[in-house]
């Protein structure tokens, strides 16, 4: 028994219907080594808890400033409180004092048992639908010890487990944790080494290698491609995706995830600048056009989820 492992989870989404088969609950683990321009879960990037502030819900009552032990909140009546994020330790005192829930600490510490227990709340739905649980992030492999314990526990409980990953991890560790999963949802963010590095901050080669090892091991994989207009949706990139995927011995299903700008609001709440302001989500017609390129090559392709 390894005692004392805990993990940081920034969200649990129930009735997740786009994260693997059936009805699922998805746990989002905090921390991610990538730095994707289009990231729609910016609150998941930092491996530590972060403070989120929803201005629209703030009453300007000042309870937060009074509660802050660091003196990190400036407040004058009639205006919104200003948080000095340099001094904020995300201790949560302001969130506890906030009457409206406008201030919230993103990132809750769980033991593996605690997390699995919470995910098990929806077990009847999993069983009726052939669903289960999905670990996502952030990058779930960024908390490998915690993830390992969770995967083992989940399997013991007889749950179907999916791992939603960028594939950017140390190969041995990656394979070990992938083997503990029933299905890997694998993000393939670009096919161009140069651009991949530029837009995500990490190289593509190790990701391709880890993917290869999944195929060799016979671990079921669903490929997920975020479609970011003007970045990875050019004809050459699409051709590269199709060529690569259609040559695989067992062709994995492909999910094209249209870029969306719902993340924008989250950036505001965290006080972090969004880098893709003004980028429009691709149209339905455009997504269908892209999907046709995949299905023509004999690939099973889905739009969304």
């Amino acid at each position: 028994m390894k005692g004392g492992i805990t993990g940081l989870v920034f969200d649990i989404k129930r009735y997740a219907i786009h994260d693997g088969p059936g009805i699922r609950s998805t746990a989002f683990l905090k921390g991610c080594p990538l730095d994707c321009l289009w990231c729609h879960n910016p609150e998941g990037k930092d491996p530590r808890p972060v403070l989120s502030f929803v201005e629209a819900r703030c009453l300007s009552c000042g309870a937060c400033a009074a509660a802050c032990p660091e003196g990190a909140i400036d407040f004058s009546p009639g205006s919104f409180p200003k948080t000095n994020r340099e001094r904020c330790t995300a201790c949560g005192a302001c969130a506890a004092a906030c009457p409206t829930g406008a201030r919230e600490i993103i990132g809750r510490r769980y033991t593996p048992q605690g997390l699995i227990e919470e995910l098990l709340q929806d077990r009847p739905f999993f069983e009726a639908s052939g669903g289960g649980i999905t670990f996502s992030g952030g990058e779930p492999l960024a908390q490998p010890e915690f993830l390992r314990e969770c995967l083992i526990l989940a399997r013991k409980k007889g749950l179907h487990v999916a791992l939603d990953t960028s594939g950017y991890a140390e190969p041995r560790l990656f394979l070990e944790l992938a083997r503990l999963s029933h299905l890997v949802l694998y993000d393939l963010k670009d096919m161009d080494e140069e651009r991949h590095r530029k837009n995500t901050g990490v190289p593509l080669a190790p990701i391709m290698k880890n993917l290869q090892s999944l195929f060799e091991e016979g671990i079921p994989v669903w490929i997920r491609i975020p479609v970011i207009p003007g970045m990875n949706d050019g004809p050459e990139t699409i051709r590269a995706y199709v060529d690569f995927l259609s040559r695989l011995p067992t062709k994995p299903p492909v999910f094209l995830l249209p870029y969306h700008d719902i993340g924008k609001e989250k950036y505001r709440r965290l006080g972090v600048p969004s880098r893709l302001d003004g980028l429009k989500p691709p149209s339905r017609a455009r997504m269908e056009e892209l999907a046709r390129a995949f299905s023509k090559a004999g690939l099973e392709v889905h739009i969304g989820g």
Partner: peptide
């Protein structure tokens, strides 16, 4: 939430589960 056929199937399962409960 109900746009695709797969969504319909899951939605139906949601209902079944409510009834099982």
């Amino acid at each position: 939430v109900l746009s695709g056929e797969e969504d319909i199937r899951k939605f139906a399962r949601l209902v079944r589960t409510y009834f099982t409960l």
